[in-house]
């Protein structure tokens, strides 16, 4: 009963990939890959996705913990707000980031005025845009893990004299580590594929803000073959990393 729809589902996911593989210009692949702009984009993609994931971990884990554990008025609203980047078109997310953190943004104007710091058109901007879009993946995953974690271990820690912070660090965090790991992997994958918010907020400049998805998009304009090559590289890297991490964290 379930096998047929399952196979259709799998085919639905795999066929487009197959399309990429079939149409790839295999004969010129080597020379195309060696182009410095591809390596630049790949390096920037990996760097920014990793930094964005770290940023998400830094703020997302505490946020997930608060959502799961602290009962405060408006918690449902806050939880809904956290998921907004999931439903918001990324381009709109990018505009929203500009309006908040841009040179004339709500907060950005003060960053510029006080610290001379402007985020658009910088690699930091890329990281922020990716983190904005990827954060919900981490928060949702970690919140689920915190909810599922056995509270009584925290009781045990308290009776052993552990402060709330020590308990969180030495007991709760290790207990939810699989959830955090899974969330981080999802978060990283989302950040790696991020396009809309990045190009809107951080713009597109090779070596500084041009990540792989942006390079793919622009290559599509006049060189679809190059776009396929870039997509394959992105695909290969993410499959390798995700397969490696999934085994450790999720299963």
């Amino acid at each position: 009963m379930l096998v047929l729809p399952a196979l259709i589902g799998l085919a639905f996911l795999v066929l487009p990939l197959l399309g990429l593989l079939v149409r790839a210009p295999w004969s010129t692949l080597g020379t195309r890959l060696a182009r410095p702009e591809i390596l630049d984009a790949l390096r920037l993609s990996l760097l920014s996705a990793t930094l964005a994931t770290l940023l998400c971990l830094l703020v997302g884990v505490p946020l997930a913990w608060v959502l799961a554990r602290v009962d405060f008025p408006g918690r449902r609203l806050v939880r809904a707000l956290v998921t907004v980047p999931l439903v918001l078109p990324p381009v709109v997310g990018g505009v929203a980031l500009l309006l908040a953190l841009g040179r004339n943004g709500l907060v950005g104007r003060w960053l510029d005025r006080w610290f001379g710091l402007t985020l658009p058109f910088t690699t930091a901007g890329v990281v922020l845009a990716e983190a904005f879009v990827a954060l919900p993946f981490l928060v949702i995953s970690v919140e689920g893990a915190v909810r599922a974690a056995d509270l009584r271990y925290e009781d045990a820690a308290a009776t052993l004299g552990a402060s709330r912070w020590t308990t969180f660090r030495r007991v709760t965090l290790p207990l939810i580590a699989p959830g955090v790991g899974a969330g981080a992997v999802l978060c990283w994958a989302r950040a790696l594929g991020e396009f809309g918010a990045t190009i809107t907020f951080a713009g597109n400049f090779p070596g500084r803000t041009q990540t792989m998805p942006l390079a793919v998009y622009l290559a599509l304009e006049n060189d679809p073959q190059a776009a396929i090559v870039l997509s394959l590289v992105l695909l290969a890297v993410s499959v390798v990393v995700l397969a490696g991490l999934r085994g450790r964290w999720v299963l």
Binding site: D150, R152, D155, A156, A158, T159, G161, S163
Partner: peptide, 14 residues
């Protein structure tokens, strides 16, 4: 709890 000199052996040990 963390400021009481108690030792607890829980039912499920924990």
């Amino acid at each position: 709890a963390e400021r009481r000199a108690v030792g607890v052996v829980f039912q499920d040990l924990l």
